[in-house]
Write a protein that binds this DNA or RNA. Structure first.
Lengths: 362, 362
DNA sequence: CGTTTCCATGGAATCGTTTCCACGATATGA
DNA sequence: TCATATCGTGGAAACGATTCCATGGAAACG
């Protein structure tokens, strides 16, 4: 009974479901070595002879052996897997980020478990629990919420985690973020230079660090440029497209509507564009528009959109670098990447001809 | 020695790295039951008393226990994980697809391992090997190549796999695809109705099923509309943006350039738009443009782009449905989703005023 | 030639679950 | 009242790798 392993019990008989469960034991047998030796060869342990290396390699090839990652990491407590949790891959920014992270991780032999929080904390927490159960080696997180949910569990368990794009107040973890201040200051100065005095702002949610940071930067820049501060010029959106549209509608219906609008992320900017079209307001002529986040589509619009650009590629790579350092027991410094205004046609027509110190379109 | 488990050996002593490795054994002890009982409670096995259910639940809560997915699936041979392999998440279509798949999978308790093949077969094969090692319960694959790589291994091993968006000739797996024929026929008929006789086509790679299908549909539609067949009007791209730009450049430099262009996917259409702008050709006036794939950005362009639309949401959900059926041992039929032309301004200006049977812009 | 060192090796314990099996208690039937 | 079915339970054997430990043989040294 026990001498014949159950693998052989279904020869060609009925169907071949779940056949081919080749284990390291089979490889060892085929190579004529012990499982210990086979394991050492497979994991590149130098304590192996050329002979057994060769024979094991041949057996692996012949049997099409793929080591069981579960068993491997159960014993070794490493999964070679990292979790990436973003708010929505449909947001081009996060898609680009996911791609960058995934490629960087791949280079280091890590696979990515991807999750979408859909800008909701409960979904984030649900995913984090999954990642904990999966025993990922580390987590790259664009966080939601105030850090009172499962994020605390991560800390308590000492699971290597880094924040990307966003941070959470009161949670001290390495992060890769963008310095919004410089880009937004440039944008406001640029618009002011074009003669705009009423610059509307479609803000992100104040529960998210980037939403707060960019709003603060906007207020600061308004003050620095000695522009009148008018709370009515600010619309609070949720970083999603529909709220960009809503923001435009509200702002344009003001008694004194803005002559320029700055949107705090790309989906809201897209929503804004859609609504401006629908309302018949010509971008770059009737109203100037600048978006935070640089995604390729903005350059294709007519007129092309001015943007505050930051390198999502760098952000992804840096996040992986940081995480790997944490996994190796380090405590790396957080990284702040720069942002930079790119002026295009959507904002380069002066508002009041005559009051201008001109910046040119590119 | 053996009576005190090693967890307790580092009390508050030095540092708390990798503390809190709570196992089901700890839960069982805390609840005063055996590990068997604890396991049954956790997995919802009905053979448990209300009393132990209660006590175990309390212990789980108190110890913040997260079952080790590795150990669990090592024993049970189920990982509750499915692999999704697309060619590039930065492509909005695949980002939308990934989101749909991920949400549908989540509803069924599955997590997603995401991979980017970057339109390259070697990266696809590399990822497939990872997925095999991870023992994912199933794979949703937008395949590359001719099916002679690792895809064969999937079949041999009987790993539940479905194709999405694309298929591979000679590999008989359930799939969810789009019927390109209808949409493309509509598009060509529409353009012909506008008076266009020279309709350029920026094709996808013929190594990919969607590239072939759509090209065939284009040829068929050209013939059906009794338009002159001119091989020079076809440019073969690679489904990426740069090749869309290249295609436009080539087509517009013909002795007899086309008056309308159909692009076989959205990145190439984006590239085409960029190049048309650069060459000063006004879309919707100088040249008509229609894109396969409906992504929200196309509606924001001025003029808005006519598209051949298909529901990526449906595609994602259907793929998950199919895969779950395969995992349950079924052999579901493949699904073909419809495509539909949406006419917008980019194609609704008649080419030769006077020859028209008018379709109106919406 | 004997002793030590070194190195590759085989065997066994282990990781944290699930699942099988046997058992004792209780409820049910005759 | 005794036999039988039912049910929850504890204990132990898997699952497939890694890793520790002891060992045997070859090489190196005296």
């Amino acid at each position: 009974m026990e001498t014949i392993p159950k693998k052989n019990c279904s020869t060609d008989h009925e169907e071949v479901r779940r056949v081919n469960t080749v284990t390291i034991k089979d490889v060892a047998a085929a190579a004529g070595v012990s499982v210990g030796t086979a394991s050492r060869v497979l994991s590149g342990n130098p304590a192996t002879s050329a002979a057994s290396r060769e024979r094991v390699a041949a057996a692996v090839e012949r049997l099409d052996f793929h080591p069981n990652a579960q068993a491997r990491s159960l014993r070794s407590t490493r999964t070679r897997t990292i979790g990436l949790l973003v708010s929505d891959v449909r947001n081009q920014f996060f898609a680009d980020l996911a791609h960058a992270v995934e490629q960087a991780a791949l280079e280091h032999g890590y696979a990515i478990l991807l999750g979408n929080a859909n800008e909701r904390e409960d979904q984030q927490d649900r995913y984090l629990n999954t990642l904990i159960s999966q025993r990922v080696d580390g987590i790259i997180l664009a966080p939601q919420g105030d850090g009172n949910g499962v994020i605390r569990s991560l800390l308590r368990r000492g699971i290597p985690t880094v924040f990307v794009d966003r941070t959470v107040d009161g949670i001290d973890l390495p992060s890769v973020t963008t310095d919004s201040v410089h880009g937004i200051r440039q944008a406001v100065a640029h618009l002011a230079g074009q003669g705009h005095t009423r610059i509307g702002y479609i803000a992100g949610p104040q529960s998210i660090s980037t939403g707060r940071d960019r709003f603060t930067a906007y207020n600061q820049a308004i003050a620095d440029n000695r522009l009148p501060k008018d709370p009515a010029l600010v619309y609070f959106g949720d970083f999603q497209a529909a709220s960009g549209s809503a923001g435009v509608r509200v702002l344009l219906n003001l008694d004194q509507p803005p002559t320029a609008i700055l949107a705090a992320d790309s989906p809201m900017a897209a929503g804004a564009v859609a609504m401006l079209h629908r309302m018949g307001s010509r971008i770059g002529t009737d109203i100037a528009l600048v978006a935070f986040d640089d995604i390729e589509w903005f350059a294709l619009l007519q007129p092309a959109l001015s943007v505050i650009s930051h390198s999502v590629e760098d952000m992804g790579r840096a996040a992986v670098d940081l995480l790997l350092q944490v996994i190796d027991g380090g405590t790396p410094e957080s990284i702040v990447l720069p942002s930079e205004l790119i002026v295009r046609a959507s904002s380069s027509t002066p508002n009041h001809p005559g009051s201008v110190s001109g910046l040119r379109k590119n």
